[in-house]
Design a protein around this nucleic acid. Structure first.
Length: 420
DNA sequence: TCTGGGGTCCTAGGACCC
DNA sequence: TCTGGGGTCCTAGGACCC
């Protein structure tokens, strides 16, 4: 039994390159919302020394002096490219877990008896490359955690591995674990790394040699499961892509706001977006949490943060009902005299959307369901032109996105132009 | 001037019940 | 004066992931 972890190389940066081949071999970075931080880098950008999460304004000069191509994030494009990549990978096994926008685990049960896995991995790379233009790396091993390790090696030594690396013997596994720094292990974050380093545990092999009881006590069952999987005992299995249990829209503003009306406009917009996401997943929520933050980087300003949970009167995915609930919450936590920088809404207690719970005393206006359907359809076709009462009608895209690429793959009018 | 967003799981501790 | 004990549910907070 073998698992493959397939991971798209520098995914967002690669997506930008697909539609702009002149960027091949050139440094590319993709920025977060409001063009704030670097969230994706091509290999060339990594080589220049641009760290993950680098605040764009601090690296402006470095970008210029190195001719770095800078893009605002274009999630419509990345989401669609991801779907295409995953569809192709699904042709290679019936058992696939889409782990994130750019990663998937493939269960290759018994494949090793019939195929040369090295060749099989190469075929995946070729198929994805030729049909989407995205480069991927493939790690294959007896467990998921080891497939992660194998993937890292495949990528790190791509000139030798050609993008595929297989851990298929105890010696290779041992060597790989010795090579893997403790902080690079899947599931070991900054805090755990610090604690393990203090114990002189520096690589994955040393971690695997710890006693189960100790790992359980210090790193909870999560750490123990990881340890066992990493030592080759199948512990983490393939999971079906589950419906989301929480849905959030949280975003920094492009500037600071202190007026209630400005926040009201933002929070309404976020609530509408939450409604869209809920309807897309066919869920209703019963609880929303609204939070409000000042700018924590501005040590010179008064700080305030607050959050509040509000139950909706009934499970709902109507943007209208959600806006009402969100504004109720906002009113309760808003305080005069602060400069706000960020707000967010998290919807939870989700239930399947098509089975509304019967409510004796409070029922949603049944017209909402159809109205929302129409709004969603029009907004997809007409690029989010439908606005609600609370939203700033003049504002279609106030978020800072100076360097946005086209939605090449989902909008006809933004198709790439090929010169002949 | 400018510093991301969206998720999951686990645990401890309080509330509440019998 | 002495003031049980166990189970469950919920939430907040902390860890992790990409």
């Amino acid at each position: 039994m073998m698992y493959a972890l397939v991971d798209c190389n520098n995914f967002y940066a690669s997506c930008e390159r697909v539609f702009n081949p002149s960027l091949e071999n050139k440094p590319v970075v993709v920025l977060s919302n409001n063009d704030g931080c670097v969230i994706a880098r091509s290999n060339e950008s990594k080589a220049i020394g641009i760290p993950m999460g680098a605040p764009a304004f601090q690296f402006e000069k470095l970008f210029q002096s190195n001719g770095v191509h800078v893009f605002s994030s274009n999630y419509a494009l990345y989401g669609d490219m991801s779907r295409r990549v995953m569809n192709i990978l699904s042709e290679f096994t019936p058992d696939i877990e889409i782990y994130s926008i750019d990663e998937a685990f493939l269960l290759l049960a018994g494949f090793e008896e019939h195929f040369d896995l090295q060749t099989y991995g190469r075929k995946m790379i070729q198929a994805v490359r030729s049909r989407t233009g995205i480069p991927i790396s493939v790690g294959i091993a007896p467990t998921k955690a080891l497939a992660k390790v194998a993937n890292k090696i495949a990528k790190k030594f791509s000139n030798r591995t050609e993008g595929v690396y297989i851990l298929d013997s105890p010696e290779k596994i041992r060597k790989a674990l010795l090579w893997t720094k403790i902080g690079d292990v899947w599931g070991i974050g900054r805090q755990y790394e610090k604690r393990l380093t203090a114990l002189n545990i520096k690589n994955a092999q040393q971690f695997v040699e710890l006693h189960d009881e100790y790992v359980r006590k210090e790193f909870s069952v999560v750490g123990l499961r990881l340890k066992r999987d990493l030592s080759g005992l199948t512990t983490l299995s393939l999971e079906a892509t589950p419906v989301k249990k929480n849905i959030a829209v949280t975003r920094a503003f492009e500037k600071m706001y202190s007026e209630y009306d400005d926040l009201k406009e933002r929070v309404s917009t976020y609530a509408i977006k939450i409604g869209e996401k809920l309807r897309k997943q066919e869920s209703n929520c019963s609880l929303i949490q609204i939070f409000l933050l000042t700018n924590s980087f501005r040590k010179d300003l008064k700080q305030y943060r607050a959050s509040i949970s509000i139950y909706t009167p009934y499970p709902t995915n109507s943007s209208i009902t959600l806006v009402k609930a969100a504004l109720t919450g906002l009113k309760m936590i808003f305080k005069e005299g602060y400069q706000y920088k960020k707000a967010g809404i998290i919807a939870s207690k989700l239930t399947p959307g098509n089975q509304k719970q019967y409510q004796l005393f409070a029922k949603e206006n049944p017209k909402h369901t159809n109205l929302m359907k129409v709004v969603d359809q029009l907004n997809f076709r007409e690029n989010n032109k439908i606005k609600f009462g609370g939203q700033d009608l003049g504002r279609t895209w106030k978020i800072k996105q100076g360097k946005l690429s086209n939605r090449y793959s989902t909008r006809l009018n933004e198709l790439i132009i090929i010169k002949v």
